[in-house]
Simulated scan of single mutants.
Amino acid sequence: MEQLQRVGEVARHFRETKLSTLKPPQEFFDHRQLSRPGNMNEATSRITYNTRHFSGNYLLVILILAAYAMLTNPLLLIALAFLAGGFAAINKFAPEPVQVGSQTITQKHLYIGLFVIGLPLLWLASPVSTFFWLVGSSAILILGHACLMEPGPESEYQGVEGV
């Protein structure tokens, strides 16, 4: 019960901090603000400004790409569900050793069995290549968008404070 409350607090904090910075789609996809940067300094300053300005949108892009990667790699989804479900089932249904005939099966034996089946299954699902695909595709989309989007007029005044 306490863990469930902690998960709720983390979700609420995430929603308040990260998702509250979401910009509307009209601003995020404003094609009138697209232009090629003149030089590397301009590209760098655009990337710096836009990654802060659109941080919530970029996080959403990463989450959508991660969901896509999971759905297009069903073996990875099965392997992760098997491992997570196995951990949950062992913790819930087998906290104490169980006597089966002359053998005593402990949690340690069950975890070893889970790893013997789950880790090769996870290895076959190639999570490393999925991770690098996610990193690469996110970087290309986010850096491309941040580099091509001209900062709005409010960026000129971001360092100026009111008198």
Results as ranks from 00 to 15, higher is better:
Asn39Pro: 02
Lys108Val: 04
Phe87Thr: 10
Cys147His: 13
Leu119Gly: 01
Asp30Leu: 00
Thr17Asn: 08
Val7Phe: 10
Ile112Arg: 07
Arg52His: 07
Val135His: 06
Leu124Ile: 07
Arg52Trp: 04
Pro127Phe: 06
Met40Gln: 08
Gln99Lys: 14
Val135Trp: 10
Arg12Leu: 15
Tyr111Ala: 01
Ile78Leu: 13
Arg32Asn: 08
Ile105Val: 13
Glu27Pro: 05
Ile140Gln: 09
Ala89Arg: 14
Phe54Gly: 01
Thr72Cys: 02
Ser126Gln: 12
Gly162Lys: 10
Glu161Lys: 14
His145Ala: 13
Glu9Cys: 05
Met1Glu: 15
Thr72Leu: 00
Gln107Lys: 09
Glu9His: 12
Ser138Asp: 10
Ala125His: 01
Lys18Glu: 10
Leu83Lys: 03
His145Met: 15
Leu134Glu: 08
Val163Arg: 06
Tyr68Cys: 01
Ala79Phe: 02
Ile142Tyr: 08
Pro153Tyr: 11
Tyr157Asp: 14
Gly118Cys: 00
His13Gly: 06
Gly152Thr: 12
Gly136Asp: 10
Pro151Ala: 12
Ser35Phe: 01
Ile105Leu: 10
Ile62Met: 05
Ala84Lys: 09
Ser55Leu: 08
Ala66Ser: 03
Leu19Asn: 05
Leu141Ser: 14
Leu4Val: 08
Leu22Gln: 00
Val100Gly: 04
Gln33His: 07
Pro97Met: 06
Gly38Glu: 09
Thr106His: 04
Val7Gln: 13
Gln33Thr: 08
Gly56Glu: 03
Val160Cys: 04
Phe29Val: 04
Val7Glu: 13
Pro127His: 04
Phe28Asn: 01
Gly144Ile: 14
Thr44Met: 15
Thr130Val: 15
Arg6Tyr: 05
Met149Ala: 14
Gly162Gln: 11
Arg6Ala: 14
Lys18Ala: 09
Val98Met: 13
Met40Ala: 14
Gly86Met: 07
Leu34Ala: 05
Trp133Gly: 10
Ile62Glu: 00
Leu77Met: 12
Ile117Ser: 04
Leu65Met: 00
Ala11Val: 13
Asn39Trp: 09
Pro153Leu: 13
Ala146Thr: 11
Ala43Phe: 02
Leu148Trp: 15
